[in-house]
């Protein structure tokens, strides 16, 4: 278990982590999500004792990282895949890590095999692709059979096959009862990987809940409606207190704050002709962007989007350019089932 308690990290005038508290539980994958610059990597470095917190604490199984007697057996971490000396072979990179706490040499060969790097074990790492470097980083993290894994953007640079590989690996490890904290700035990746989400924006906690709850709470429903009597419809919608937003398509708008049946009944009551009535589910990506837009350091505003100041509360549906129902709709997707014990493979641990 990882406990982050009221953690603060300031660099001069910049506050990278701002009174962050959350707990990472064993047996599930916790996605650590936030836009670039949200403080994810800093938080991970604080958990690993690499940086000193300005205040607050981060504990591993109740202890500060520095007090772990044999840290690699407790925590495996992948921070930056490229943070290896390019002149050293993959084998020797893992060997010097293993030697710090008496992990047998055989184990080095075995984790290299596990991640598929056996054929290049004796090659210097400067020739490695980013994907191979990520695999080496995973091997280092798994070296001493840790109960806790902390992985910073592990899918970066991996090909689709590699992404599936690491996703399955993390799920299997979580099923064995390990604690897994994995960061990403990609909501869709987290939606299919994580069970639980910790969302940060500008160093502050934005959400800490199961993935399914996150989707239900933040991807508000919306309805695309097409009508030749659009102006009359708009007025009727406004009377009801629902919101119209441009759909990016001629003759159609997106109405939020209601459901397709409600909107259909309204149209029928007023005798309005509808040419299309399509329920929209905001993708998780959009929900995430909505949640972090106001706090995101590098928030971009698309043309036509409202000013952040009067941006409505999370839940408003803002369709991406001319593509209704784009993106991933996650509820019920395999892997998104929150907190469910993962059956099937009881890794026998």
């Amino acid at each position: 278990m990882i406990e982050v308690r009221d953690l603060v990290k300031r660099y001069g005038a910049t506050t990278a982590v701002d009174h962050l508290s959350f707990t990472v539980q064993p047996g599930r994958i916790t996605g650590f999500l936030g836009p670039n610059g949200a403080g994810k990597s800093t938080t991970m470095r604080l958990i690993l004792g690499l940086d000193r917190p300005t205040s607050g604490s981060a504990l591993i199984e109740g202890k500060p990282y520095r007090d772990l007697p044999d840290p690699l057996r407790h925590v495996g971490a992948l921070l930056e895949a490229r943070a290896v000396h390019g002149g050293r072979t993959a084998f020797n990179h893992l060997l010097y890590l293993a030697q710090t706490q008496g992990v047998p040499k055989r184990r080095v060969q075995q984790v290299l095999e596990l991640v598929g790097l056996q054929p290049v074990a004796n090659k210097r790492t400067k020739g490695f692709s980013l994907g191979m470097s990520q695999r080496l980083g995973i091997a280092a993290a798994l070296l001493a059979d840790p109960r806790i894994l902390i992985l910073d953007e592990p899918v970066n640079g991996l090909d689709p096959e590699g992404i599936v590989w690491i996703r399955d690996l993390m799920k299997a490890l979580a099923a064995e009862g390990r604690t897994i904290l994995v960061s990403s700035h990609l909501m869709n990746e987290m939606a299919v990987t994580a069970d639980h989400l910790v969302v940060v924006g500008r160093g502050r906690l934005q959400a800490d809940m199961p993935v399914a709850q996150f989707i239900a709470q933040f991807s508000g429903s919306a309805v695309l409606v097409r009508s030749p009597q659009l102006e009359t419809l708009r007025a009727a919608v406004a009377e009801k207190g629902w919101q119209c937003t441009p759909s990016g398509q001629e003759g159609a708008v997106v109405v939020t704050g209601t459901t397709a049946p409600e909107l259909g009944e309204l149209a029928a009551a007023r005798g309005l002709v509808l040419h299309e009535l399509t329920p929209q589910r905001a993708s998780l990506e959009e929900a995430f962007m909505e949640l972090t837009r106001e706090v995101g350091q590098f928030a971009h505003r698309a043309p036509g989007q409202p000013e952040p100041a009067d941006a409505p509360v999370p839940g408003q549906y803002a369709p991406p350019s001319g593509q209704p129902d784009a993106g991933f709709t996650a509820p019920g997707a395999p892997g998104a089932g929150a907190g469910q014990p993962r059956g099937g493979n009881d890794g026998g641990h």
Binding site: L72, R82, A83, H85, G86
Partner: peptide, 12 residues
């Protein structure tokens, strides 16, 4: 190389 962070996670 940034390797120091790997080293110090192994031996804090």
């Amino acid at each position: 190389t940034g390797m120091v962070r790997t080293s110090l996670t192994a031996q804090p």
